[in-house]
């Protein structure tokens, strides 16, 4: 009886199944090892500037103030007795926005935001982050960049 070797090569014989399974196991093992080692590339410690920083006494800011803290990329605004901290990192692709008469403009791709960080012109889709502002025991105000809010109006009210 003639054996059709080509057919045998394509069929899932026991031998083919075993060799497939062995190759699959080796491949899965290598991929798994690589994935576990991939953790190496995710840093556990950040060397950037600290996420909390002091901005001094509330009296530093007059009504209607809009002050840039350039090295933290945060803009401090005061409306009446409410003080807020708006992130100056564009929500589009991370350029630093510049303060403008109408709010904030991004030079990289033309996004525009109003004074409260709401998008007025694309391509950005999301408004600028607001950061948590709270007083410290010394009476200074502190901005915590690890607590951020996607919706505007997260003020600290001066009492």
């Amino acid at each position: 009886m003639a054996v059709n070797y080509d057919q045998e090569k394509q069929d899932l014989t026991r031998r083919n199944f075993l060799s497939l399974a062995a190759n699959g196991l080796i491949g899965a093992g290598l991929l798994g090892a690589a994935a576990v080692f991939g953790k190496f590339f995710w840093p556990n410690v950040s060397y950037g500037p600290p996420s909390k920083f002091s901005i001094g006494k509330p009296t530093n800011f007059g009504d209607g103030a809009k002050l840039n803290i350039a090295d933290q990329k945060v803009s401090i605004i005061r409306h009446g007795d409410k003080i807020g901290a708006i992130s100056m990192v564009c929500q589009h692709l991370g350029c630093t926005v510049a303060a403008s008469p109408t709010g904030y403009d991004c030079p990289c791709h033309g996004s525009k935001y109003d004074d409260k960080g709401n998008v007025t012109h694309g391509p950005a889709l999301v408004s600028l982050f607001w950061f948590d502002v709270h007083p410290t025991p010394s009476g200074d105000l502190e901005v915590d960049k690890s607590k951020k809010f996607s919706d505007p109006d997260h003020y600290y009210t001066v009492t």
Partner: peptide, 13 residues
């Protein structure tokens, strides 16, 4: 600096 900032922003998307 800004090209990489934008490039990393694209990766973040």
């Amino acid at each position: 600096f800004w090209a990489i900032t934008v490039g990393a922003g694209i990766a973040g998307k």
